[in-house]
């Protein structure tokens, strides 16, 4: 049985949000690490316990952990549990950055296809950034 409950708050996981449920968990944990709320060496909940907390299947959490382990962001120690890797924050940031570049590339391509020139594109990017900052201030 679980000895001590480890709490990890990553916000609700929902089929209404973008991406598969396991991917949402992967993204949220990366964000927690990238924003320094989850530090290297921190123990993560067991996947059965985390499944209970998030109200998703055990397989979903297991898959999310496997994905994070593959990217070197977390690691498993037999019998001890799962932990945030040393430099897991860097790797998390790298992975996020790679994803962001890919999304931006796609966005720019769409915009180019819609007939925007580079200046208009840069202007659009600035507009989006400003709007985002406003949201964050709420």
């Amino acid at each position: 049985m679980s000895s001590e409950r480890k709490n990890l708050l990553i916000g609700p996981i929902s089929p209404a949000a973008d991406g598969a449920l396991y991917q949402q968990i992967v993204d949220r944990i990366k964000r927690e690490i990238a924003e320094d709320r989850l530090k290297p060496g921190t123990a993560l909940p067991s996947f059965r316990q985390f499944a209970e907390d998030l109200l998703v299947s055990v397989i979903t959490v297991k898959r999310a952990y496997e994905e994070l382990e593959r990217e070197g962001i977390i690691y498993r120690r037999q019998g001890l549990g799962t932990f945030v890797a040393e430099r897991g924050d860097d790797r998390s940031r790298e992975a996020k950055l790679a994803a962001a570049k890919e999304l931006l590339r796609n966005g720019f391509r769409e915009a180019a296809e819609a007939g925007l020139n580079p200046d208009e594109l840069a202007e659009l990017a600035r507009e989006i950034l400003e709007k985002k900052n406003e949201h964050q201030r709420h």
Binding site: M1, L21, L55
Partner: peptide, 27 residues
């Protein structure tokens, strides 16, 4: 989910609640 937390116990469920099953079942 609590019932299967120890990894030993098993639940077999028949249901038409497909969105629930998609979220909560492993198999």
């Amino acid at each position: 989910l609590k019932a299967v937390e120890d990894g030993e116990r098993t639940v077999l469920i028949s249901s038409h609640g497909l969105s629930d099953l998609e979220r909560f079942t492993d198999h």
